[in-house]
Every structure is written in C-alpha cells, then in structure tokens.
Simulated scan of single mutants.
Amino acid sequence: MSEAPSPALETALAYHRAWTGHDFDLAMTYVADDIVCEAPSGRLEGAEAFRGFMEPFSQILTGSHVISAFGDDTTALLMYDTKTLPVKSAPGAECLTVRDGTIRHLHIIFNQAPFIAAQGAPSGS
C-alpha cells in the first residue's frame, strides 16, 4: 500500500496540474494573496505580480511532465520539464512553502539557456 502524498506536495501537484493544463484561474486558487516568489527575473510580491509573471509562460506551454516530486507538511519540491512553442525542452524546479492549502513562498529555478539559444537562432530553425 502506498503512502498518501504530504499536504504540501498535494497542493504543489494540484497547482502544477492546473497551470500546465492551461487553467490559470484554477492554479491561482492555490496561491496566497501575499505570495512571495523568487524567480529568475527577481523577487515578486503578491498574487497579481506572480500572475503577471507566470501566466504568460503558461500560455506558450505545449506540454509538461514531472520528473520528480517530494514533500512534507509545509514544503514541496518539484522538478519538471516543459515543452513550449519556442523550445522543445525547458527544465525547471520549484520549492514551494505551503500553509493552509495555499502557496505562500515559491522559489523557481528555470533553465533559460534554451530560450536564449532560440532567440539567437536563424528563422526556420
């Protein structure tokens, strides 16, 4: 018999399924109003700023799969790979702090190299 996922991991996976499934309104139900997000572009504070950062990325997403996921009562760690319109593979990881079923802090590590390379590629590549 397998053990049930931790509370933080359940929230993190539900959030991930929502944004990668192009339901950003549902994804935002897992995000606290006062979320703090440490993103590759810098620190974001509040749900509105977070949505402004993350939703445009979700709109160019064509696929995603979770490579690994771990969690306990308050912290979850997801590693995943995404497919987007500009690049076929864009791996990332998120460390999420969850309280009362909402994400309070999110630290995103994202490989920007594939996007940088795609911007420099000649058209038709």
Rank of each mutant, 00 (worst) to 15 (best):
Pro91Ser: 04
Ile108Trp: 02
Glu38Asp: 15
Thr84Ser: 12
Gly46Lys: 05
Ala32Thr: 05
Pro91Ile: 02
Phe24Ile: 09
Leu44Arg: 12
Asn111Ser: 11
Leu77Trp: 10
Asp23Cys: 10
Asp23Tyr: 08
Pro56Arg: 07
Ser68Cys: 06
Thr62Leu: 10
Asp81Ala: 14
Ser123Lys: 14
Arg51His: 04
Ile116Asp: 07
Ala93Met: 12
Leu9Glu: 06
Asp72Ala: 11
Thr62His: 03
Val36His: 08
Ser64Lys: 01
Ala49Thr: 03
Thr75Ala: 12
Tyr15Lys: 07
Asp33Ala: 14
Ala47Phe: 01
Ser41Asn: 13
Tyr30Thr: 10
Leu77Ser: 12
Thr11Ile: 09
Pro122Leu: 09
Ser41Arg: 14
Ala76Met: 05
Ala14His: 05
Leu26Thr: 15
Phe53Gly: 03
Ala113His: 12
Ala113Glu: 13
Leu78Ser: 02
Pro56Trp: 03
Phe70Trp: 14
Ser64Pro: 02
Leu13Ala: 03
Phe115Val: 02
Phe110Met: 10
Thr62Asn: 03
Ala47Gly: 08
Leu61Asp: 01
Ala118Tyr: 01
Phe53Met: 11
Tyr80Ala: 14
Pro5Asn: 15
Gly46Arg: 02
Ser89Gly: 05
Cys95Asp: 02
Ala121His: 04
Thr29Gln: 13
Gln119Trp: 09
Gly63Asn: 01
Thr29His: 10
Glu48Cys: 04
Ile109Phe: 14
His16Trp: 15
Gly52Tyr: 00
Ser41Val: 15
Glu3Lys: 13
Ser68Ala: 14
Ile109Glu: 05
Ala90Lys: 04
Thr74Arg: 15
Glu94Tyr: 09
Ser2Pro: 14
Tyr30Gln: 12
Lys88Ile: 07
Thr84Lys: 03
Ala14Val: 06
Asp73Ser: 11
Thr82Phe: 13
Val36Gly: 07
Ser2Ala: 15
Thr20Arg: 03
Asn111Leu: 11
Thr20Pro: 07
Val31Asn: 00
Thr75Glu: 13
Ala39Asp: 10
Glu94Ile: 12
Leu78Thr: 00
Gly120Cys: 06
Leu77Asp: 01
Ala113Cys: 01
Ser123Tyr: 08
Tyr80Phe: 15
Leu44Gln: 08
His22Lys: 14
Leu61Ala: 03
Glu94Pro: 00
Ala12Tyr: 10
Arg99Gly: 08
Ala27Glu: 11
Ala117Lys: 09
Val87Pro: 02
Glu55Trp: 01
Gly46Met: 04
Gly120Ala: 13
Ala118Lys: 05
Arg104Glu: 11
His107Pro: 05
Gly92Ala: 10
Ile35Tyr: 00
Pro114Glu: 00
Lys83Glu: 15
Ser89Tyr: 04
Leu13Tyr: 05
Gly101Ser: 01
Tyr30Trp: 09
Glu55Arg: 07
Leu96Cys: 06
Ser64Leu: 02
Glu3Asn: 13
Asp72Tyr: 10
His16Pro: 05
Ala117Tyr: 06
His22Arg: 15
Lys83Ile: 08
Gln59Leu: 08
Arg17Asn: 13
Glu45Leu: 08
Glu45Thr: 14
Ala90His: 07
Phe110Asn: 02
Leu9Val: 02
Thr11Ser: 08
Phe50Gln: 00
Ser6Tyr: 06
His107Lys: 14
Ile116Lys: 13
Gly101Arg: 04
Gly21Leu: 07
Leu61Glu: 03
